[in-house]
Nucleic acid binder design. Structure first.
Length: 461
RNA sequence: GGCUCCAUCAUCUAACGGUUAGGAUCCCAGGUUUUCAUCCUGGUCACAGGGGUUCAAAUCCCCUUGGAGUCACCA
């Protein structure tokens, strides 16, 4: 049984980097028919932040990830931690330290002056005397004094830490009784039965401390997979200042969950030359031991490409639903198949699709100056008038090909090239020189509207 | 500063001692298209540097350099 977990602190939204580790954890659990747990790390924020948890669940829901069981809040597990602190106290594996804040600071500045590592001096490790009056104690764990601790990491390999370099008797419970992070993480992961810890490699150097806790409590160690960070274009850890880090912003920007997930799963992981992965393929092929060691740069060019790829392959009915979120209602539009077919070929995002759709559906309020100059020449008026005439004489116009035939007829009759009619017609219909195929546009908006738009342009000139 | 991790095209990456170092995105060019986009074809572009080990090194080892992360009564 594989049990993984995602353990964010309640920051109020799901971070794009968080989504990646969540995805990898989710995939690994589901692939093995195991469990994927969600735990909110709110021991310090202590304001039982359910809103923040909900934001994460909302984002999960949007991308289609689902955690198993109830959400665990560390803030509501305080008694469990206290129990385990007490256990260590009873077994002499942890002890009360009465050092004051001032004493600690003094010790540190002394060590700094001597260019030594800031490190607790174990003064209360074997203390048996009378504690100082009226002073709250913190609880420290007895960490090994020498030797080394090796993290067997599924991504990085064996990472050896020298105890003398990194450890001291660190605090596991504050003077107010609340437990600290490294203690809580170890206790929770162990108690919740987590077998595979997949998390950012910024946690790698915390791991020895957690191992000390595991060992003291007699828990068996999980497998660790420390996945490399995602960097911004400056090569630094991704932060809120780097633009879109909130997962839900991607919904607003018109990306599909499949594209986003596909993009993220390929950051730091690959399967040969494959670029496009369906959910099923991810589940089938993902293995955390294939994760890269090195950090990657967050560059959304490929996300755009993936998004347009998925858009092109999304059924119109689904597109229709997705577009609702972006203010486009097409359910009752009788030409929506033609419209969507032509639009989805030329948009990178749903937002772009929405804009393109409006360009077709809404009569242009102004004509682009340059387009007018380039697209409407001396002979254009005659061409458009001819076209309008033939249009009025023809009945039963429905398909793009119907309109195409009329364009052909006019062109042949007048002995001109296609460009002579295409350019001015395009300006009339769309107000500019680019856009979907004209026959499609006309089929979508119909004869009446086509004539009206031509008329509007002719009146202006 | 100590400790730890990392190092292949601009970007994501393949290669698990033997390839002209491959793919994708971006970019550029050509083709297709009434236009734009799509699509197709082609092109530019990389093993950080230096030592070893080996018949053979992008791959293993060491050093240098560079980058990142982490060092709390934060998580």
């Amino acid at each position: 049984m594989v049990v993984t977990r995602f353990a964010p602190s309640p920051t109020g939204y799901l971070h794009i980097g968080g989504l990646r580790t969540a995805l990898l954890s989710y995939l690994w659990a589901r692939k093995n028919g195991g469990k994927f747990l969600l735990r909110i790390e709110d021991t310090d924020f202590s304001r039982n932040d359910e809103a923040a948890a909900l934001a994460i669940v909302e984002a999960f829901k949007w991308v289609g990830l689902e955690h198993d069981g109830a959400i665990e809040y560390q803030s509501s597990r305080l008694s469990i931690y206290q129990e385990h602190v007490q256990k260590l106290l009873d077994e002499g594996k942890a002890y009360k330290c009465y050092m004051s804040r001032e004493e600690l600071d003094a010790l540190r500045s002394e060590q700094m002056e001597r260019k030594e590592r800031a490190k607790y001096d174990n003064r209360y490790r074997d203390f048996t005397g009378t504690p100082p009056e009226g002073r709250d104690a913190v609880i420290r764990i007895k960490a090994p004094l020498e030797g080394s601790i090796t993290v067997h990491d599924g991504v990085k390999g064996d990472v050896v830490f020298n105890v003398a370099d990194i450890l001291d008797d660190f605090v596991i419970a504050r003077s107010d009784g609340t437990p600290t992070y490294n203690f809580v993480v170890a206790v929770d992961d162990a108690l919740m039965g987590v077998t595979d810890v997949i998390r950012g490699d910024d946690h790698l150097s915390n791991t020895p401390k957690q191992i000390v806790v595991y060992n003291a409590l007699g828990f068996t160690l999980p497998k660790f997979f420390h996945v490399p960070m995602i960097h911004n274009s400056e090569g630094k850890k991704l932060s809120k200042r780097d633009g879109a880090t909130d997962v839900m912003m991607y919904k607003t920007m018109g990306y599909t969950p499949q594209a986003l997930l596909n993009f993220l799963v390929r950051l730091g992981w690959s399967h040969g030359d494959q670029e496009v992965f369906s959910r099923t393929e991810m589940l089938e092929l993902f293995d955390p031991s294939d994760i890269n060691r090195s950090a990657s740069v967050y560059n959304t060019d490929k996300l755009d490409w993936l998004n347009s790829h998925y858009l092109k392959n999304t059924p119109n009915s689904v597109l229709c639903e997705l577009l609702e979120f972006h203010g486009i209602t097409l359910v009752s539009h009788d030409k929506r198949e033609i419209l969507l077919d032509t639009i989805k070929e030329r948009a990178k995002t749903l937002v772009e699709m929405a804009a393109l759709i409006n360009e077709v559906l809404v009569r242009p309020i102004a004509f682009d100056e340059a387009a007018l100059k380039k697209g409407f020449k001396e002979d254009s008026r005659a061409v458009l008038e001819n076209f309008a005439t033939v249009l009025k004489e023809t009945s039963e116009l429905h398909l793009p090909s119907d309109y195409h035939h009329i364009m052909e007829k006019v062109v042949t009759d007048m002995g001109i090239g296609f460009g002579k009619i295409g350019q001015p017609l395009r300006v009339a219909l769309l107000g500019k020189l680019s856009g979907p195929g004209l026959d499609s546009v006309m089929a979508i908006i119909g004869v009446e509207e086509t004539l009206a738009r031509i008329d509007a342009l002719l009146k202006l000139k």
